[in-house]
Design a protein around this nucleic acid. Structure first.
Lengths: 200, 200, 200, 200
DNA sequence: CATGAATGAGACTTCATTCAT
DNA sequence: TATGAATGAAGTCTCATTCAT
C-alpha cells in the first residue's frame, strides 16, 4: 500500500517534471498533452488521472514555486537585515532559483508572470502578493527613515521586480548560457541600481 | 481616383484599428479573424486581401509602433539633453503613448514584448534594438563622467526598460483607469529611481 | 472600331494562350485565376469579361483543339487510304500536335481526357466521338475484309487511342524532352503494334 | 486483448473501405473528410488518428493495391508460361481486380494512375515499376525469339498497359454495368490485339 | 492505476466570382 | 473595355478531453 502510494506520487512528480522540460522547450501552447506524456514515459490518459486539465499542470508548477518564493520574501522581510539587504536577499533568491532550475524559471516567467493574457491574468492576485510584500519592505524602510519617501512603495516594488524579471528574461533567451559570475554580479547590480535610487 | 485610393487605404487602416480593439479586448489567440472583420465592418476575405495572415496584422501593428518608438529614442539620444533628461524623454514618450492609445500599447506589450514564446521571440532582435539604444545613452553618459561605471550600460537599459514596462503592465490590468496625474508622476518616479541609481 | 474589336480578340487569345502555359506549368486546380491574368499581363477581372468562369477557359481550349482533331480524323476516314494508313494518319496527327504545341497537348490530356472525375466527365461524349470515328474506320476495314472480325471495332478504337495517349503521357512527364526521331518512330510503332494485331 | 487489437485494426480498415466508396462516388477532391467519417460511422477525428491527412488515405489505398498488382506481375513473370500467356495473366489479374472490387479500381485509376497532375505524379515511379516489369517480359520474349524486335519493350509495355487501362476506364464511366462475359472476352481481345502485334 | 482509442468543436486560410468605378 | 477591391462559402487539420477496458 505504501509502495503503491509512493509509486503514485512518483508518477505525478514524473509528469510535472516532464512538463517543465516540455513547456520550456516548446512552450505551453505549442506542446500537446501527449508530448508531456511521452516525455514522462507514461500513457496519454494517465496525465488526466493526476490533473484535471493541461492548465492545471502549469497552475501546479507555478503555485508550487511561487509559494516558495513568497515564503522566501516573507522570511527576508521578517529578518533583522537592513532594507537593502532584504532586497538583496530576494533578488538573490530569485537568481539562485534560476541557477538551480533555469527551465522551471523560464516556464514560470514566460508562461505565467509575463503571460498577461492567459495565466498571468489567472494568477494576477497571487503574483501581486509578491509585489505587495516587497512594497511592504520599502514602506517600512521609509517609515524607519532609511528610504526616502518621494518614491511610492508600490512603484518601488514594481521597479525592483521588473528589473529582476527583465534580467532573467534576457538570460532565458540568450543564445549563450550565463556563467555563475554574471549571476552573482547581477545581484549586486540590481541592488546597486534600484536601492541606491531608493535610499536617502 | 484619389477618392478611390483613399478608400482603399482606409479599409486597410480600418482593419488595423479594429484589430487593436479586438486584440486588446479578447487577446490575440482568443480572437478569431472574423471578429476583426466584424469589428471593422468588412467582409472576412478582405482581411486576407490586405494581410497574408492573422500574424501579419499583429506584426504590422507592432512594427509601426515600435519604429516610432525607436525614432523617439534616437531623437532623444541625438538631442543636447543631459542623460537623465534623455531617459526622462524616453519614459515620457512611452507613457504618453499609453495615454494616447492604451489599447494599442496593451496589445504591443501583452502580445509582443512580453509574449516571449510567440511574437516576442519573432521580434526579439527588434525589441533589443531599443535596449541597445538606451544602453548607448548610458554608456555615453558614463564616458562623459555623468553616470558611474559600476553598472554596465546593458544592465542599466534592462532595468530602465523593465521598470517602465512593469509600470505599464500594472496599469493595463488595473481595474480602475489611470488618471493623468499618475501618468505624469510615474515619469518622475522612474527617472528618480533608476537614474539616481545610475548617477555619480 | 475595327481596331478596337481586333484588340478585344487579341486580349481573349492572350488569355487563352496564357492559360495554356499556366495550366501546363501548375495544373488547372493548383493555379488561380489571378495567375492566368498575371501571365497574360491583364487585370484580374478582365478574364471574367471574356469567360464566364475558370472552367470555361479550359472548356474552350479543349473544344478548340478536340474539334480540330475530330476534323482530322474525319478527313482521314474520308480519304482513299488503306485502313492501316488512315490510323497512321490519325496517330501522326496527334503526335504532330504534341510536337507543335506540347503544352497545349499536356493540358488537353492531363486536365481533360485523363481527368475522368472532372472535365473528362463533362466532355465524355465529345471524347467518345473520337473513339466512335476510329471504331468506324475499323468496322469498315472489317467489312472490306482487311481487318479480321475477332476484335470488336469499339475495342480496337480503345486500344489504339489508349496506346497513343499512353505514349504521349509518358513524354509529358519525362524529364528529358523527346527528339523528332522518337516522335516519328512512335508513329510507326503504334501502327505496327496495333494494326498488325487487327489485320488478317 | 486480442479482441481489442482486432477492433483497432477494424476501425482503420473500416475507414479505408469507407473511403473507397466515398472516393468512387464523389471523387477525391469533391468529398470531404467528414463524408468518409460519416460513411465509416466513426468520429471525424478518428480519421486523423489513423491517417495523417486525406492524401494519406488515398496513398494507402493505392499502394496496398498496386503492390498486390506488382506481385502478380512478378509472379506471372517468374512462371513457366509463354510470353503471351504471361501478358494474358496480367491483363486477367487487372480485369479480375475490377470484377472483384470495381469501386477500388475506379479510385486507383481515376484518382491515381490517370491523375497525372496530382497523385499520379506522386506515385509516378511506382506506377512505372509496373511498366518496367511488363517491358522486361517483352524483352525476354524478344531475346528468346518469340517476340519480334522491331517494337521496343518499353513501347510494348505502354501500349499493353494503356489498352488495359483504357478498357477499364470505359467500363468505369459506362452507364450500364459490365457483365462477366464481356470481362472475359476483353482479356482475350487485349492479348489478341496487342500480343499478335508483338509476335513474330 | 494505467492505457490509448475515440470524440468533435473550432479556426485559419483559399480563391472563384461579383461589382463599383 | 478594363481594373482590382470586396465578398463569403467551404474544408482541412488540431488537440484537449473522455471513456471503455
Amino acid at each position: 500500500m505504501a509502495r503503491a502510494e509512493t509509486a503514485a506520487i512518483d508518477k505525478r512528480r514524473l509528469i510535472l517534471d516532464a512538463a517543465v522540460r516540455v513547456f520550456a522547450r516548446q512552450g505551453f501552447h505549442t506542446c500537446r498533452v501527449s508530448d508531456i506524456a511521452d516525455e514522462a514515459g507514461v500513457a496519454y490518459g494517465l496525465v488526466y488521472h493526476y490533473f484535471s486539465s493541461k492548465d492545471e499542470i502549469l497552475d501546479t508548477l507555478f503555485l508550487e514555486r511561487w509559494n516558495v518564493m513568497l515564503a522566501a520574501i516573507a522570511e527576508a522581510d521578517a529578518s533583522q537585515l537592513q532594507a537593502r539587504d532584504k532586497l538583496r536577499a530576494i533578488a538573490g533568491f530569485i537568481i539562485d532559483s534560476y541557477r538551480h532550475d533555469p527551465e522551471l524559471m523560464k516556464v514560470i516567467i514566460v508562461e505565467v508572470t509575463r503571460a498577461a493574457n492567459t495565466f498571468g491574468r489567472t494568477h494576477l492576485a497571487t503574483i501581486r502578493d509578491a509585489y505587495a510584500q516587497i512594497a511592504g519592505i520599502v514602506a517600512r524602510a521609509q517609515a524607519e527613515g532609511v528610504f526616502r519617501t518621494e518614491i511610492t512603495p508600490e512603484f518601488a516594488a514594481l521597479a525592483f521586480y521588473g528589473a529582476v524579471e527583465q534580467v532573467l528574461t534576457g538570460w532565458i533567451f540568450d543564445s549563450v548560457p550565463v556563467d555563475d559570475e554574471e549571476l552573482e554580479r547581477s545581484k549586486t547590480l540590481i541592488v546597486e541600481t534600484i536601492c541606491r535610487g531608493l535610499e536617502l
